[in-house]
């Protein structure tokens, strides 16, 4: 079942002549984790603002959980959670005061005390948010985004600024949330996160979609269909490459395995970073 269906989406900022979003189409499956990727200025933040109704004067059709996005009023935010990248809390209030304040705006709430414990912020719950480190604020952002137990969760750079241990905790929580049948849309520049989390990925470049596939499909499409074998060639590391096609019947390959001391074998699988650069033509990504 489709959670979000976008057809012919166009948007131009006021006082600008060029379109920021140039007729894009994509769909997000319910219960999936969807990655929105692209270089700075590609239009992904604008797309996310449109999908979260922060921008409403767009052209095109967006169907959200079976209804026209435009038909939703403030009740839209009862089923949607938005986690921004930047800090979004009242600095002079404690973590708990912030959560209580925002939680009271929703009809239903999750057990945010339990979630605070899971993300390792329970001990700091009575501390002013202004004294938090960036990593703590990122984790608090995540808890706030989940306050209303949303059906669709938008996360912007959910692990940016976190140490590997806390990043793993967050990724595990995201995957746990997905298992409950929730849909998650992630904007990130961390390709490791994309590989570990996303079921489907969209690359945006200059307001257009340049690629849409699963991470696996992308790797197959952009990867070299070959195997590189490194072996000890009389005290010197040597290597040979073989085409993947018909590898099992490749006598030269089999002979090398049998006769040489193999050190490493690598497939020509390319990383998502390399795919990003190939697809978007950018050396830096956001």
């Amino acid at each position: 079942m489709v959670a979000i269906q976008v057809k012919g989406l166009r948007f131009t900022y006021p006082k600008q002549t060029e379109e920021t979003i140039k007729s894009i189409d994509f769909s997000v499956e319910q219960g999936s984790i969807f990655g929105l990727l692209g270089p700075s200025g590609a239009g992904k933040s604008t797309t996310q603002k449109i999908l979260t109704k922060l921008i409403t004067d767009y052209q095109g059709e967006i169907t959200f959980l079976g209804k026209d996005l435009r038909s939703y009023k403030k009740d839209f935010y009862e089923v949607v959670g938005v986690g921004f990248e930047m800090p979004i809390h009242f600095n002079k209030l404690t973590a708990l005061e912030n959560l209580k304040y925002f939680a009271a705006l929703y009809k239903k709430n999750i057990d945010y005390i339990e979630l605070l414990k899971k993300v390792g912020l329970y001990e700091a719950r009575n501390q002013e948010v202004g004294t938090f480190s960036k990593g703590m604020k990122v984790r608090l952002n995540f808890v706030r985004a989940l306050l209303n137990d949303p059906d669709v969760l938008f996360l912007d750079e959910p692990t940016n600024g976190l140490d590997p241990k806390n990043a793993k905790v967050m990724k595990d929580l995201i995957l746990e949330y997905q298992k409950q049948g929730k849909t998650i849309i992630i904007t990130t520049h961390l390709m490791g996160d994309v590989e570990q989390l996303c079921d489907q990925v969209v690359f945006m470049t200059k307001g257009k979609l340049s690629e849409m596939a699963t991470p696996r499909e992308l790797k197959i499409k952009y990867g070299k269909k070959e195997v590189k074998v490194e072996y000890d060639g009389h005290g010197v590391t040597s290597f040979q490459t073989f085409p993947l096609l018909g590898l099992g019947q490749n006598h030269e390959f089999i002979q090398l395995l049998q006769e040489q001391q193999v050190e490493t074998i690598h497939s020509g699988e390319t990383s998502l970073e390399e795919i990003f650069i190939k697809v978007t033509g950018e050396t830096k990504y956001e």
């Binding site: 979260t52 109704k53 922060l54 403030k74 009740d75 839209f76 935010y77 009862e78 949607v80 938005v82 921004f84 930047m86 800090p87 979004i88 809390h89 009242f90 600095n91 925002f102 705006l105 929703y106 009809k107 706030r144 209303n148």
Partner: peptide, 17 residues
């Protein structure tokens, strides 16, 4: 101050008009 904190943005994605 609230714009810098981002807290206005948070209110705008909450179920309030």
């Amino acid at each position: 101050l609230e714009k810098q904190e981002g807290s206005i943005k948070t209110l705008l994605v909450s179920p309030v008009s």
